[in-house]
């Protein structure tokens, strides 16, 4: 399942993994069942090199300029940004809530860290999401194994460093099993300071 659909061009800088961009948008009044979630999420393109990433990314709307209830997802190629995907099933995510106005800059920093392999947790990272909501925006980074505390702590510490978060900022971790159970991405999270 590591079949690459795109390859780096001549002279380009290859990425450790290929990544795929996804976009989703939903009407907030409608319940987010897993079926309607899958119908609302669209694959928009894959990249294999740093240069391909910039060409693609430069044509995307900045997340902070999106309206309504929408998400950009950047996941390793072959991993669907869904709790149920084989690679995500035993995983979870770190959540960072952002006040309005910060999403574009923080999103860029989190994905550059991911593409550049700054997390140093082997194969653990699955992808990153920026979620545009009405009151606040939310960044998350998903990993494969929610009960591996060495990994989750290292991801948290790397996030603090690459996003330059104050040491007392609140970060929350939520397992995908819990998200499936309450059918919600961001409710009832375990808070960690």
């Amino acid at each position: 399942n590591r079949r690459r659909t795109v390859c780096p061009g001549a002279g380009e800088h290859p990425l450790q993994y290929n990544y795929t961009f996804w976009y989703s948008r939903r009407t907030p009044s409608r319940p987010a069942s897993s079926q309607s979630y899958e119908q609302n999420i669209r694959q928009i393109g894959s990249v294999a090199s740093v240069e391909q990433f910039w060409r693609f990314y430069s044509h995307l709307v900045r997340p902070g300029d999106l309206s309504g209830h929408s998400d950009f997802h950047l996941f390793k190629e072959g991993i669907k940004p869904m709790w149920e995907d084989e690679s995500n099933r035993s995983g979870g995510k770190w959540i960072i809530r952002l006040r309005k106005g910060l999403a574009s800059r923080f999103w860029e920093n989190i994905i550059l860290a991911m593409l550049g392999e700054q997390f140093m947790v082997g194969e653990e990272i699955c992808g990153a999401v920026v979620s545009i909501r009405f009151q606040e925006d939310i960044l998350s980074i998903w990993n494969r194994t929610s009960n591996d505390q060495t990994t989750t702590s290292r991801i948290r510490d790397t996030l603090r460093r690459v996003l330059n978060l104050p040491t007392n900022s609140i970060m929350e971790y939520k397992t995908h099993t819990d998200s499936l159970r309450d059918n919600s991405s961001f409710r009832n999270t375990k808070i960690s300071i």
Binding site: G9, G11, E12, H13, P14, L15, Q16, V50, E51, W54, R55, S58, N109, L112, A113, L115, G116, E117, Q118, V162
Partner: peptide, 21 residues
């Protein structure tokens, strides 16, 4: 094998290279 690591500064430099346009 070897892991391909890039820091933020390097990635931002690649943005302005002709290959990325």
């Amino acid at each position: 094998g070897t892991r391909i690591i890039y820091d933020r500064k390097f990635l931002l430099q690649c943005r302005t290279s002709p290959l990325a346009r």
